[in-house]
Amino acid sequence: MTTGTVPAKLAEIIDDFQDLTEPDRLQLLLDFSRELPALPERYSDHPELLEQVVECQSPLFLTMEIGEAPGHPVHLFFSAPPEAPTTRGFAGVLLEGLDGLPAAEVLAVPDDVPDRLGLTRAITPLRMRGMSAMLGRIKRKIRESVRDEA
């Protein structure tokens, strides 16, 4: 398990969730779901460039753009259908919390971050695994990409 620091933006989101009652946390997750931006045209016209995260209950497609050294800033792109709001909500949290950060900071995000949102009881551990799988996939792709470059 990674035990690095939580990036400031993501830490803020976790605090926002923690400050709420359980039903309001679900409502906040729904807000993230609604605000998940549509894919830019270069991906929406080319679905084959997206990778499916199969561990999620509902279809989630993900791709990333990793910038130049030294920082390797990471940009995330997610796509999930409107009938999968929980999956969209998880994607929205990760997008807002991680997008644009240097690769090393994303890799250092603790693996138990999904559990810190305080949703496990309302959503159940089984459903929370979808979010852990997304974070795992993001990290794996960063590692592969940075390794390929080296």
Binding site: L30, S33, T86, R121, A122
Partner: peptide
Amino acid sequence: DEDVLLYETGHIAGAVKIDWHT
């Protein structure tokens, strides 16, 4: 539903939600 938030995105008028898991 399987998705715990789907009802909140819109449901049949008057329908109540029952979540199988919780």
